[in-house]
Design a protein around this nucleic acid. Sequence first.
DNA 1: CGTACACTTGAGTGGCCTCAATACCTGTGG
DNA 2: CCACAGGTATTGAGGCCACTCAAGTGTACG
Lengths: 291, 291
Amino acid sequence: MPPTEAGTSAATTAFPSRESQVEAGGDGDAGNPRWSVAALTRKLEARTSLSAAELEIIDELWIEARVLAAGRDVITEGHKDDMLSVLIDGIAIRYRVLRDGRRQILDVVLPGDLIGFPACFFDSALYSITTLSSSKVARLPFLRLFRLFKDYPRVGMAMFWLFSCETAMYAERLSAIGQRSAVERLSHFLLELLTRMQVIGLADESSFNLPLTQEQLGDALGLTRVHISRTLRQLRDDGLIIVTGQKVIIADFPALEALADFERTYLRHFRMSDTLFAALVSSSEPRSSGS
Amino acid sequence: MPPTEAGTSAATTAFPSRESQVEAGGDGDAGNPRWSVAALTRKLEARTSLSAAELEIIDELWIEARVLAAGRDVITEGHKDDMLSVLIDGIAIRYRVLRDGRRQILDVVLPGDLIGFPACFFDSALYSITTLSSSKVARLPFLRLFRLFKDYPRVGMAMFWLFSCETAMYAERLSAIGQRSAVERLSHFLLELLTRMQVIGLADESSFNLPLTQEQLGDALGLTRVHISRTLRQLRDDGLIIVTGQKVIIADFPALEALADFERTYLRHFRMSDTLFAALVSSSEPRSSGS
DNA sequence: CGTACACTTGAGTGGCCTCAATACCTGTGG
DNA sequence: CCACAGGTATTGAGGCCACTCAAGTGTACG
């Protein structure tokens, strides 16, 4: 019996060297004693006022960590997917393909990011999500999500907030692609990715592993592969970044920041509103209506 | 081509300068017996499976209809706004201004669209919303929103779904601006606006009132004022559209559709997932609070 | 009537694209 | 070991789409 194409061949040829980053090979998820959505709770810890106990609740919401090889669809455009998931480990991209084949990468999905919003609220997913490296995904049953609002409104609020971050990031990207030049877009993209990776411990002070090819960078920024190459070269020539293989080092942070119109406090804007949060006293019955 | 030839249009929404300055410092709707968020319920009726009773609940969620003159900020970037609102009447734009003054219009806000998502979940709003015409806005206290999930989970789910639509629309626009040419973007924009307006009864079969100046169109599509003018001219010369004043008539629907890569079923993709919706029946225990 | 604003149209420029050739890297097979 | 193939990155030449600058029209408003 020939091996189905499902598992090995397509996946292992894609990025053989990157497998080493992602845990040890394929240990079975079924018998796994306990995995955790550490990247997610870490993000929540950094930008919300959730207590340790509440973070624990978040951590235990999820079930069934699935392991996916590189290059596999987590969600496919046009198909139904009614699950809310979170990426535990690995890297993925969210993208949309136009009829003539042009592709727009909407977002790079990092550990701790949600998968399935907004797709799960629709009859069919509006875009696809594909893994770039071997990845692990956990799922959240919907009834459990809804029970959250009864039992732990503050935790439920945090889920809302995660949706908001997603939306806000799209808006940010819209203004980048709509208004900025190639150099500006690229440097902004690099700084944004660096910042996001730092929060979940995937990047150090000023360098990170860029998980995208130049073609994928182009599809994310609305530019061609060729022009990405030229623009990267320009950034290198100007001494703003240093590139060795997949590793990107920000050589001149202030200059790149100015060029990109990037605010150092970028992610600070995404902090969860405390005033709103405070209004939600734990599960006790709300007596008064608004304000 | 005087713009006053709007004729019978029941809603006086489309004319920025027509309405006099009716500024409402506090709430200016005391004498009004009852307003309704008809555009919102109409949208929900078209694309969800909410019952008439549930639509009624939605309709009665909102308080304090504020009236705003044209050109007023509903939300200002950088300021705190912790209210979720809905536009009842009028037109507004959501936009973000870069440091050097370039502006990206993220969305055109029509009656029935939400205001305050995702801003209300953050410490400070990430973008501004400004009225283009005299507008009316209703607000939703947050505790009321959260009680919804306890008392009417299906209705709460519909709110989630509204957030999702917002996000999905951004994603759609991202791929448009990132991948498409000027003609494609513009025709897609026109068809999208037509479709959205039809749902809430602001447009007929093939024409509508375009509430934006060419400069605003440019800021929405990542193009310059001048190029919008040329592109509109091209569409007119090719017999695809007819423009008289603010009124836009789609003269050749199929051709424009093909050019824009626009799916006639565009908004159908945004239908609320029924399977998910049905799963919520069990936990529905309407312990109604109001009599 | 004069200012203000939105739109139109022309001429010239430039950023990014397309096409194309070359080099590199890794895995595969002779 | 080298030859080869496929995917990725680099670099050049030329072209086009959209931009900039600028002049001119039409309409609204004081």
